[in-house]
Design a protein around this nucleic acid. Structure first.
Length: 424
RNA sequence: GGAGAGAUGGCUGAGUGGCCGAAAGCGAUCGCCUGCUAAGCGAUUGUACGCCCUUUAAAGGUGUACCGCGGGUUCGAAUCCCGCUCUCUCCGCCA
């Protein structure tokens, strides 16, 4: 969330920024609530001050065995009034809080303006698209023919958007996330963490999934626990409500996790195959950084994601999300899109974002400046490194052969007991 | 699932109705002392939100809140009462 003080003092700037994001937000309501809150706060604090000092007098009188009944009677009224103001104040603060919680982040000045994904500029392209002497197939046709992806049985076991992997398919999925974890831990400086896959409501609020995106989450029956839609949630919340030492920053974490998404509102979109599942695996990179380095960290993070595709020999391009396409919590996002020959298009395989202090403020993740001793919010970043299921799609489609077999990229062979090719 | 114990500042730990934002110790920071280091001495040492002052900064002043969380009793709650959460111990169960 944004800082209330910042919002109050820069309301016109924020109005413009939200306009660029295509967000319609009633900031007049905010200003009214904020003013109301401060008025009430002053009133109630004045009354509390009175009660505190009079109560002290009562104590002194009683110690001297003198009569204090007059003061006590008077304070009864004051206490009643405090309760009354407190109730109004609480309601006002709840309204104000609810308002601030659904205001998106302010985008960085380098974010291009635009209204949708068609306006996202391509910042880099890498690799040569494979030339086929035949019509390249889509991954679901390849996978079913090879007997490594079973969508029908996934649907039987659970339902639509769940898939059963078998044999070399299951091994490929596992090989891919192990390869990614090893790359990020041994060469990119990340520390691996393995987190709970269910989190409480505070954690979901800290990273911004709640309260605004409740319908995208799976909730556990009878508990205030949710299945994570990304490891960003448990990993970023590692330091919720903590004050970190400046020297420990930046912190780099990488985590494997399954991700669970309700995909409300995507009916009919990517209905076939692995692209859009209710459950998929992902390797996620998360950083906690000092504000002055966070944009350098974003570039490095994105490069770390791209490196996975380079090692796998999968062509990709990187786009910078424009103002209208930016996610709720993000100040700046790069999407890395892998080339998918079967679909004859690039598909998002990683999304790398700098949230600046937006999540840190919600989650109360701060650090103490060594030179001033002051606390400040950290900047949080994260990026997929990468989405595993979509990487399987990219491998199958880019490495498919005329006979329907699939060559295993060399980087993955050590993770598949040397297997070089998947054949029916 | 059953029984019991507990939750206080960066840490240890005192505090059972007002003098408690909270003793003491440790740690940390600054200063003094000192050939150097260590020891010693002194001072400082939580967070948030308002208001005043100020350039809408910092610093300063002032007020309020916070002793796991939420309610209640009371003129007044870290302290008493109720509910919840979490932690620990024992028993049972279990991978």
């Amino acid at each position: 969330m944004l800082d209330i003080k910042f919002l109050r003092q820069n309301i016109d700037f924020v109005r413009v920024k939200m306009d660029e994001r295509g967000q319609k937000i009633d900031f007049d309501r905010f200003l009214a609530l904020d003013a109301k809150r401060r008025d009430l706060l002053q009133a109630v604090e004045t009354l509390r001050n009175e009660r505190n000092s009079v109560s002290k007098q009562v104590g002194e009188l009683k110690k001297k065995k003198e009569d204090a009944s007059e003061l006590i009677a008077k304070m009864g009224d004051v206490s009643a009034k405090i309760k009354e103001y407190d109730d109004t104040l609480r309601v006002t603060e709840e309204e104000l809080n609810a308002f601030v919680m659904i205001v998106p982040n302010v985008q960085h000045e380098s974010v291009p303006q635009g209204t949708g994904s068609e306006d996202n500029p391509v910042v880099r392209t890498w690799g040569e698209k494979p030339a086929f002497t035949f019509e390249p197939k889509q991954h679901f046709d390849l996978g079913e023919a090879l007997g490594i992806l079973d969508f029908a049985r996934g649907a039987k076991i659970t339902g639509a958007r769940f898939t059963l992997y078998r044999g070399a398919g299951a091994a490929l999925e596992r090989a891919i996330f192990n390869f990614m974890l090893d790359l990020h831990t041994t060469e990119h400086g990340y520390t691996e963490v393995l987190t709970p896959f269910m989190v409480n409501a505070d954690s979901m609020t800290g990273t911004g999934q709640l309260p605004k995106f409740k319908e995208d989450l799976f909730k556990i029956e009878g508990l205030e626990y949710y299945l994570i839609p990304t490891a960003e949630v448990p990993v970023t919340n590692i330091y919720r409500d903590e004050i970190l030492d400046e020297e420990m920053l930046p912190v780099y974490y990488v985590a494997y996790s399954p991700c669970f998404r309700a995909e409300a509102g995507s009916y009919g979109k990517d209905t076939r195959g692995l692209i859009r599942q209710h459950q998929f695996n992902k390797v996620e990179m998360v950083k906690f950084a000092r504000p002055e380095t966070s944009y350098d960290e974003l570039e490095k993070l994105t490069a770390n994601a791209e490196e996975v595709l380079k090692r796998l020999g999968i062509p990709f391009r990187t786009v910078c999300l424009c103002s209208g396409d930016l996610g709720f919590s993000s100040a700046k996002t790069y999407d890395v899109e892998a080339w998918m020959p079967g679909q004859d298009t690039y598909r998002e395989i990683s999304s790398c974002s700098n949230f600046e202090d937006f999540q840190a403020r919600r989650a109360a993740i701060r650090f103490r400046r060594k030179d001033t001793g002051k606390t400040e919010f950290v900047h949080t970043l994260n990026g997929s490194g990468l989405a595993v299921g979509r990487t399987v799609v990219a491998v199958l489609e880019n490495y498919q052969q005329a006979d329907g077999s699939v060559i295993i990229p060399e980087a993955l062979r050590p993770y598949m007991r040397g297997l070089e090719r998947i054949t029916p």
